[in-house]
Design a binder for these strands. Structure first.
Lengths: 347, 347
DNA sequence: CTGAAAGCGCTAACAA
DNA sequence: TTGTTAGCGCTTTCAG
């Protein structure tokens, strides 16, 4: 009964090399064959309860963990994992997205693996590379890259890719985005219909395509209403709630402050809410992106159902796998939800 | 050169079985040995550029992707995927947790796979079973189960388990929880110090251990201050923001309304904020769990750094893998952040 | 720079 | 119910 054919059990660094324990060790400790041990641990039928118990006990005692690579290799079943790469795991926008993705994947027996690029291009590249290397069955990517040409190799290496929330540039790839133009237009049109003429735009980083689209739609909507565009009422590059708050305060301090403010994403909206806190008569406010507290606070927002966005993304991925069509970009509608703040008249 | 020893290559359904192409096929197509193909694709040195190009072209043409299971098996590095099972992907509490987990795992070269049980026991069981079956390298679980005895088999089958945010019951397992007692006590003590004597408690479902702990700590804190417990000021089971809002409105409508309210989690806090909206002089408010808009709204909260919670959970998992200690529960501190709402005096 | 053989740890087929 | 044998697809020796 030589269980230990190797004495160097000491160098077992944490997750270092998956522990040099093998099924054989467990089998020996339990006094059964290697295959029986496999069956017992794998939950297969046709193992006596007593035997199974003995094997499990042995495994637990030894601290044995199955080598999933070997297991998968042998059974030929890949892990079927789809990677979702977002910019910030803590942003509610991405969380809603993740919810939709997770549910949709689960329906198809696929597993979700998530990673955050922290809005960093290098990190994004590393994560995508890793996913490709691990042979993910697909990648859903909210890219921070300006140009997606370099992502071509992902598809070339057989991993389907769907860009989410950001339309592809320099690459013919599938994408699922929000209808930013319709959403923004609805918000601005609402202001105009209520008589607003000084409508401010406060946006996040210009380099983000959705931000560019929303800004362009804002300008177009004003033009369509015959309103001039006042550069003093346009703020771009507010990437944090704090920056946005300061920007909105500046707007309020203008000689001719805006009577309505459109904030181009959830973070900016939060900044505006903070800026409005001590203001007796705040301007009307509509923010892009719905958020949980909007209801409780009475903040009107326009946005897409982020879970829908996720579901659409998964759907696009599945269809891409079938490979029946050319890459396409589909848009998820953005709807305006009035909750009070957006309906305030000019004063 | 019989590359094909099997003719049934046709049943390769979309996501079916990860393509039966092997390195051998690529090598044959490129006219090199299997090892050279491996070197070329793997980015190893000592391959003529021309050869490397030829191999890559062949791989791209055939649509070959490396079988990572085989690769990892041979080189000894396991897949290293950790599953995080939460109750609701869209809840900011879990998102913060996920952030901490993801970062900590990434530092250790581990991959995060996430799933939501939607607070459903059956779903939770299915997900955990799935994770064990797929031989995850560890499971971080925010369990909705009342009794965790059934989870024993997870560890027995060699998958390390760490319970998060809920202490184990009926099972000797590792756990990482929030110091609910200290947090709640600090909140109540703050109220008492400011002269409040009618302090309400509004909590979520009683069956959730953290809720029970917070309620018990509330009662203990009142007792310690020599204050009586008024059953009319205690609401439990408010599982949605809407329910909580209604409950808080009821409290405000009492003959002797509370002068301070303690809300036992983020959802309940949101309900309270909504209930306070039209109230001229709302009671003082401290909520358990920090949330993004707390700053902007001036809502005092007490809570843990959820990212810390995630990091601790990963740490516990790693140590468990080392198997050097007995399972233990560790608590992450909860700190009180005054932002105005909690500092209002009684009136 | 390239190739041949051996085998990583596990499970699918067969036995027994 | 249990055991034996043969590989999964790749990378590591060790030779050319």
């Amino acid at each position: 009964m030589t269980t230990d054919d190797a004495g160097e059990r000491t160098d077992v660094r944490a997750w270092g090399d998956g522990r040099r324990l093998t099924l054989a060790d467990v089998a020996a400790a339990a006094g059964v064959s290697i295959k029986t041990a496999s069956r017992a641990l794998g939950g297969e039928p046709n193992v006596a309860d007593a035997t199974r118990g003995r094997v499990r006990a042995a495994a637990a005692t030894l601290g044995f963990t199955m080598n999933s690579a070997a297991s998968q290799l042998r059974r030929g079943t890949a892990v079927r994992t789809v990677g979702l790469v977002v910019g910030d795991l803590a942003n509610p926008f991405y969380m809603g997205l993740a919810t939709g993705v997770e549910h949709a994947l689960r329906e198809h027996g696929l597993q979700l693996t998530m990673a955050s690029s922290d809005e960093d291009a290098a990190a994004e590249r590393a994560i995508v590379e890793d996913l490709v290397h691990r042979r993910a069955d697909g990648i859903l990517l909210v890219s921070t890259l300006d140009d997606h040409a370099e992502l071509r190799s992902v598809g070339d290496r057989g991993v389907p890719l769907v860009l989410v929330d950001r339309a592809p540039s320099g690459l013919d790839a599938d994408a699922v985005v929000i209808d930013n133009v319709a959403g923004t237009t609805a918000a601005i049109a609402g202001f105009v219909a209520r008589g607003h003429r000084r409508i401010a735009f406060v946006g996040d980083l210009e380099r983000l395509p959705p931000q560019r689209e929303r800004h362009a739609a804002y300008a177009a909507a004003l033009a369509a209403s015959g309103l001039p565009i006042d550069a003093a009422l346009v703020v771009r590059g507010a990437h944090s709630a704090a920056t946005a708050e300061a920007a909105v305060r500046d707007l309020l301090a203008l000689d001719e402050p805006p009577t309505a403010v459109f904030t181009a994403n959830n973070r900016v909206t939060i900044g505006a809410i903070a800026a409005f806190r001590d203001v007796a008569h705040p301007p009307a406010l509509v923010g892009f992106d719905h958020f949980e507290l909007a209801d409780a606070l009475g903040i009107s927002t326009v946005g897409a159902d982020t879970a829908d966005l996720g579901r659409e993304a998964v759907d696009a991925l599945l269809r891409r796998r079938e490979g029946e069509h050319a890459p396409a970009t589909r848009a998820v509608p953005a709807t305006l939800v009035p909750r009070g703040s957006g309906e305030r008249p000019p004063r």
